[in-house]
């Protein structure tokens, strides 16, 4: 554990909780991509199956349980409790275009051929692109609520902070996992456009709207 990793985890946690609280408080999931949330639920489920097979620390297990619970809680709010507020017309990204290639890639580029390892690798590849339906939705509607922008910023910052963590771990522990590092860089690059808009608009008190 180092400061970059911890900041990344807290940023990730903040993002997930921010989204849950926003939906709960406003009684609405307008502007949120249900498809991205489905992908994140798949990501957490396939990655955190190791809750049952390996124990790292109380911190790790606790966070995994929180991420899983919050993710499925978000899906419940979006697709059951506040379903009438779900803006499915604008959530038109084809997620099979992300699910299938990630799955194929996790069979081609993987460290060890075991079920758990392939599922873990799949979760890494899928997470890298899971935000695409949400970014696509923002580009289609041309705007995002401020709280949604904060959510996206926190979620994007998490992997960027993990990159600093991997650089730190490379020098201090000789840690080098190219699968997670390359996927993490791709994931962060996808947010760059949004980061620019967030810094130039949202932080100056303006709504995030596209030209």
């Amino acid at each position: 554990m180092n400061i970059f990793r911890l900041s990344g985890d807290l940023s990730h946690l903040l993002a997930i909780l921010l989204l849950l609280v926003k939906i709960w408080k406003t009684r609405s999931c307008a502007g949120i991509s249900g498809k991205s949330q489905i992908l994140f639920a798949i990501v957490y489920t396939t990655r955190y199956l190791d809750l049952f097979t390996s124990f790292v620390s109380v911190y790790n297990s606790f966070m995994k349980v929180v991420f899983l619970t919050a993710s499925y809680g978000t899906l419940y709010l979006m697709f059951f409790k506040f379903k009438p507020t779900y803006d499915h017309n604008h959530d038109s990204f084809r997620i099979l275009y992300l699910i299938i290639p990630s799955l194929v890639l996790s069979f081609i580029i993987v460290h060890v051929y075991t079920v758990m390892e392939i599922l873990w690798t799949y979760s890494i590849y899928l997470e890298a692109v899971a935000i695409m339906p949400q970014l696509f939705m923002v580009s289609r509607t041309g705007e995002a609520e401020t709280i949604t922008s904060h959510y996206l910023f926190a979620l994007g910052s998490y992997r960027a902070l993990y990159i600093l963590n991997w650089i730190y771990r490379y020098y201090t522990e000789d840690f080098l996992d190219m699968i997670v590092i390359i996927a993490g860089i791709v994931q962060t690059i996808l947010y760059c456009d949004f980061f620019y808009l967030y810094i130039t608009k949202v932080l100056k008190g303006k709504r995030l709207s596209l030209p």
Binding site: R5, D9, H12, D50, S54, V56, S57, N60, M63, K64, F67, H111, W120, Y162, N165, E173, D174, F175, D177, I179, V180
Partner: peptide, 10 residues
């Protein structure tokens, strides 16, 4: 988890 692999991360 082996600290040399990413499995100790979230």
């Amino acid at each position: 988890g082996n600290p040399k692999d990413g499995k100790d991360e979230l």
